[in-house]
Design a protein around this nucleic acid. Structure first.
Lengths: 333, 333
DNA sequence: TACAAAAAAGTAAACGTTTTCGTAAAAAGG
DNA sequence: CCTTTTTACGAAAACGTTTACTTTTTTGTA
């Protein structure tokens, strides 16, 4: 690896001059800069990020927390957010590195890992938000941004979950559905907001919610959602429309319906959530979250926080879009 | 950030002793080590990766090349490989950072980026293998491993593409199919091997391949695959079975068949490739690549190369598994 | 021409580690 | 009790940058 020292020698100037020339400082003559840049190119010079970081306390590297549980990077919804975050970050010269809790092979904490790597900031994209280690990280001094979760002094970007469910229920209502079931995910903030939207929507339509129509499953869990679907089918007074926690677990719902010989949407209407690729291809009626927007805005928030650590935490909401597919029937005429 | 200097002061020893104690060198008394470790813990000490890297020329950071084109990180097949690579790497104390060709916001090359960040090695997981920048990277001194592509002096891990197609054709043959179409991807090494397996299988079964049954599409391209499917349907003598480039683009094939009012598998059999989640859920007959194995083995190869740069490039093959789904009918009885 | 001001370049310390080499003290050997 | 070996630790240089400060050179002005 050729270093500034070698360039300095070849150019007959000091190392400081080389550094300043390559960083385009204004106390170096333009002619000297050009000469140095030319030689640096010829010699195939590349700065050393470690040395630079050591001196400047800035790595231009962002930590990303993305759990390996569940589908990990293959998660159909969060992987898109991550990709969009990555694209935005690279656009502005940041690299991204995954945060884990090992350092040099031995156990550590997420926060320690970030300190070790000197990340300029961290994005908590997919994680168990109740994990004390995650909380420690979010509440630390390190600039951070959370996706789909709000901590007190950590910026966040969340989807408009309340409106999402409201739109869904309104649509179902407009199609004549009065018996609407909602299989929701674990009771996180996201779910609570969606439930709020669900109840609001029902109230608006003058629908009294049958408590047995509201079931708890888990996000991204096909089996659980299948199980809940079976329960709904066993009810004396079946719903006519089932809202699933997300498009992926909705596959479980669809499978059970197929097994029971029910066709969608003729015998049962189904609505998903997220707008993942597979759902769109298969004509699922769903609420498409703006995952690309989520990732991009999350990066922006984080970059702002890195540049201006004094700005207070901000909580942004990103709006999605209701998608009319082929899984909801018009009924009751 | 508390540094070794502060610990040294508090302990009344030198910085060198602190470093050696924390790195468990054997010229430090056990009692001293314990004392230093205790104080370090109390003070919340965390080493500085940049400083360490500067001194040791080792970052324990691996660069991962994963293009943003196409689906990017949301790619149903490669994201699983990446995840498995990530898990394996983290297991052994490596971090992973994405490689791009920007440094501090200005254009650069992939190789330069790796030099800048001092990666110990690089994994080329999803990329345009004909891009000169990628070739430069693969052929460089930097320890590297490629997935699904072979360069001369770069280790690689590839899937058993020939056997994959052989198994597929054998199965189709065993189900009575003699008119088998193959929509393949771009003419890469992967495709060439698959074509070899395809022709081998046909020969084995005594099937003369009708040239109009072999069409070129692109991987992961639903539209192209739809288009090819339409072409096949227009043939006077239609095939009875269509093999698609991959499970994802097979969705295009299925959609066209549905549009034409053909049911699968009664009117047309369809076989995919990859064994992605969506395909498995939907009962697709396909060849499941061992993507988890691919990622894990790729990491192992890379780690070995990092530890022993002198070992020559190795090319490993990972075997997959044929999956019998519900998209191929038995015919001809 | 002389001198101040501005421009250009250099000096040296610092960032936080690791590691080689040196040395004092302790232990072992005779 | 003296010499040799071993053990435990420290001093200092080095990794490749950046940057505050100083020095030298050039330019401008009277």
């Amino acid at each position: 690896m050729v270093s500034m020292k070698e360039i300095a020698q070849k150019c007959g100037v000091s190392v400081a001059t080389v550094s300043k020339a390559l960083n385009d400082k204004d106390d170096i003559a333009e002619s000297t800069k050009e000469m140095i840049r030319k030689v640096a190119d010829e010699m195939g010079f590349m700065a050393n990020a470690s040395a630079r970081a050591l001196k400047t306390n800035r790595t231009y590297n962002i930590g990303v927390l993305f759990t390996n549980d569940d589908a990990g990077l293959a998660h159909d919804y969060f992987s898109i957010i991550l990709n969009s975050f990555k694209v935005a970050a690279e656009e502005e010269g940041y690299d991204i590195t995954f945060v884990n809790h090992k350092i040099a092979g031995r156990e550590s904490t997420y926060l320690k890992h970030c300190e070790y790597r000197n990340f300029d900031g961290v994005a908590i994209i997919l994680a168990d938000f109740k994990d004390p280690e995650i909380i420690e990280l979010a509440e630390s001094k390190l600039p951070a941004v959370c996706i789909d979760y709000e901590y007190y002094n950590c910026s966040s970007v969340v989807s408009d979950n309340t409106k999402g469910l409201l739109d869904i229920v309104r649509y179902a209502g407009s199609m004549g559905h009065r018996k609407i079931a909602y299989i929701h995910g674990e009771l996180t903030d996201v779910t609570k907001n969606r439930l709020m939207g669900f109840y609001d929507g029902c109230r608006e339509q003058g629908i009294t919610v049958d408590p047995s129509y509201v079931l708890q499953s888990n996000y991204h869990d096909i089996e659980q959602c299948s199980e809940c679907t079976r329960k709904l089918l066993q009810l004396e007074d079946r719903p006519t429309c089932i809202i699933c926690p997300d498009d992926y677990s909705a596959m479980g719902c669809l499978r059970v319906l197929a097994q029971e010989g029910l066709s969608v949407p003729e015998d049962m209407s189904v609505i998903g959530y997220d707008g993942i690729n597979m759902a769109m291809i298969n004509g699922m009626t769903t609420y498409m979250q703006d995952s690309i927007g989520l990732g991009r805005i999350a990066f922006r928030k984080l970059a702002d926080k890195i540049d201006h650590p004094e700005i207070p935490a901000e909580h942004s909401v990103v709006f999605g879009k209701f998608i009319v597919g082929r899984t909801v029937a018009k009924i009751g005429d």
